[in-house]
Simulated assay, not measured.
Amino acid sequence: MQPENKTKKPTLADIEALTGISKSTISRVLNNSKFVTPEITTKVMAAIEETGYKKNTPKLQTGITISRITLVVGDYVGLSTGFYSYLISHIKEEAQRIHLNVELLVLHDTLNADAVASQVAGQEAILLLGLDTPTVLEVIQAQGIPAVIINGADLNMVSSCVSPDYTLGAMMATRHLIEAGHRDIRFITAGYRHSLFQRKAGFMRAMELAGAGFDASSQVLTLEDYARNQMQNEALAAEIEADRAGGDFGAAQVIPHALSHGVLAGATALFCVSDMVAISVMDCLRQAGIAVPGSVSVVGFDDLAISSLTTPPLTTVRTDFAALTKSAVHLLVTETGQQHDYSVRLNTQVHFVARQSVQTLK
């Protein structure tokens, strides 16, 4: 009796060998992922037809289809402190919990499409940390790499995004100041990032709802604009816009000039766009002999660990880093094998934290 001649069942490895396309990308084709170009889809489907591979293999329908997440950042991560180091730490914890490896990729030239394409080529899945420049997004999307943005936004709504609810957080902080009797409240910010615009929008909305009035020309101090227009310091303005002026967006250099020229005169409260800005502002006020909160109240945003150690301890808005990173990691894992063709924007919870840097006015 002759032994039965069994034909080997084709596998993903066979398709990978035939096409030169990674198994994770082949899996995305089989699951109708939006993160695959038509050219790749055509090539994979031709190989499936040639090999006789059964695309309804159950293994493709369940579980995690990637082994590694790449965190893509700009070189600002090495210059700023606090927020992104917290973010990276929490991402690593969540990824390790579900048995995914994590690696870091720093893009030094985010406007050079060829350089970006070379660096991101071959990545399985990407988390973009505060990096939402059109060049970077277009390159990643063209390569068919699943990507989710944390602390940013794709204005074309191709890539999904996860951020703290900055608008609500800013509204809570502003409302607290108003309820404490403050009316002349100034907002100190930088104006080049989507997440910063959201905080400004929350401040403006809370002022309007309270009937406190709002005048952007007098109540908002945008650090790079002030450096450029009032200080005539184009170099500093450019550094702030390029995220190279430190974690406080250049506040330590701008605020002394603003104080000495009376720009903040009359304000009873300063709402700062981040804790690092607020800490620099409090230091500048102290050096100018202005008491916090005796003369001016100060509020920050993020609730970094250092914020409870300042003198006085800083009132702020807490970002829930665990909720933020868990949402982003699981959204990315889901999208590596998704069968729908849409993107989402998620906002995670924030909490107001009252400390001693705000004085209630009589």
Score class of each variant (00 low, 15 high):
H108C: 11
S163C: 05
M1N: 09
K55G: 13
G266V: 13
V263H: 13
V77A: 00
A13M: 01
A227S: 10
R205S: 01
V281L: 10
V44K: 02
T110I: 14
P38V: 14
D114K: 15
E335V: 08
L314I: 11
L104D: 05
E241Q: 15
N5P: 08
K23V: 03
T51V: 05
Q359I: 12
I188D: 11
R228E: 15
T7N: 14
G246Q: 00
G52Q: 11
I26V: 10
G122A: 06
A95P: 15
G247F: 03
E16C: 00
E239C: 04
E49S: 09
A258C: 05
T311A: 11
N229I: 10
L60N: 12
Q287Y: 04
M1L: 07
A95F: 04
T70N: 02
N31K: 00
S24W: 12
P134W: 07
M204F: 02
I69C: 09
E239K: 12
I88P: 02
A245D: 12
V353K: 15
L236I: 03
Q339N: 13
D165F: 06
T222I: 10
H108A: 12
A265E: 15
S343E: 01
A206L: 04
I48S: 01
A237S: 15
M171T: 03
L79V: 07
L264F: 06
K54H: 05
K34F: 04
L127E: 07
Y84Q: 04
G250H: 08
S260L: 04
L259K: 10
F321W: 07
G300Y: 12
V263P: 03
H330A: 02
S118T: 13
